[in-house]
């Protein structure tokens, strides 16, 4: 294989073939060029540990009828304000629990706590995303009751959290009109893996160049099944549709 760019003839690239029957034990081959070295077939998903834990979380949530949302966005899209307004309006209908993810500070969890909802803050330190293990531990500490809605506010980042399943039922991506309308093209992985897209801060549309139709068109290219809500968490515009959707989860 070419040392510079990793390209090469496919035949040279493949060390050996996929076994014809499922193996539960490592498959050992003697390498021809060095009799002391052995090539061991591993065939394991790098994120298998996270995926397994995410499925455990998902099973627990389903058994307890806990509807779990994973809120993802760039920093500053208005996730926490949206969450505060949502909880304040719906707290008589829905029991909310919140897991807050940030690199540092308790600021967001304090804002959520003021609404009366149960909240736990995860500070990832240098980490750029939450993973299924963090959620597993947080849920045990939070003691989420049955029939509630658990909202996980992920670290503000449109790249890394896309790869880490947390066991959520719905991934909700939020973009705000103060960002570029081409966000879905720039960060397609996140839009591709989301179920719901909230377009926030629509009250600012008259002052910015954001084209909602274009943003939706781009997002739909990355994910044909995205469902949109155009909202202003600040003024309440469009929030009723979002609230109705949340009520429908119960």
């Amino acid at each position: 294989m070419c040392e510079t760019c990793g390209c090469g003839h496919p035949d040279n690239n493949i060390t050996f073939r996929r076994p014809s029957h499922p193996h539960t034990h490592p498959h050992v081959h003697e390498s021809s060029d060095d009799s002391h070295s052995r090539v061991i077939k591993i065939e394991r998903d790098i994120l298998a540990a996270n995926k397994q834990l995410a499925e455990r979380n998902r099973g627990y949530f389903e058994a307890k009828n806990i509807k779990t949302l994973n809120l993802v966005s760039a920093p500053g899209s208005g996730k926490t304000t949206l969450l505060v307004k949502t909880i304040e309006t719906l707290k008589r209908d829905i029991n909310f629990c919140v897991i807050e993810g940030d690199q540092q500070t308790m600021n967001d969890s304090e804002r959520i706590s003021a609404t009366g909802a149960e909240v736990i803050q995860i500070n990832t330190g240098n980490g750029c995303h939450l993973d299924a293990d963090m959620i597993n531990k947080a849920v045990k500490k939070l003691n989420v009751p049955e029939n509630s809605v658990l909202v996980i506010e992920n670290v503000g980042n449109l790249v890394c959290p896309a790869l880490f399943d947390l066991g959520e039922a719905y991934r909700v991506v939020i973009m705000s009109v103060t960002e570029g309308d081409d966000k879905p093209l720039k960060y397609p992985n996140m839009f591709h893996t989301s179920d719901i897209c909230l377009i926030n801060k629509t009250d600012l549309l008259p002052y910015v160049d954001f084209d909602i139709a274009k943003a939706k068109e781009y997002a739909l290219k990355a994910n044909h099944h995205l469902r949109f809500f155009e909202i202003s968490a600040k003024t309440g515009e469009g929030m009723n549709e979002w609230f109705d959707w949340l009520r429908g989860l119960k």
């Binding site: 998903d45 790098i46 290219k221």
Partner: peptide, 20 residues
């Protein structure tokens, strides 16, 4: 159309290790 199933290209997998 844009409704496509990407069936290859999302792999993150350890294939093999060479050991002594």
């Amino acid at each position: 159309g844009f409704d496509n199933d990407i069936y290859q290209g999302k792999e993150l997998k350890i294939k093999s290790i060479t050991i002594d």
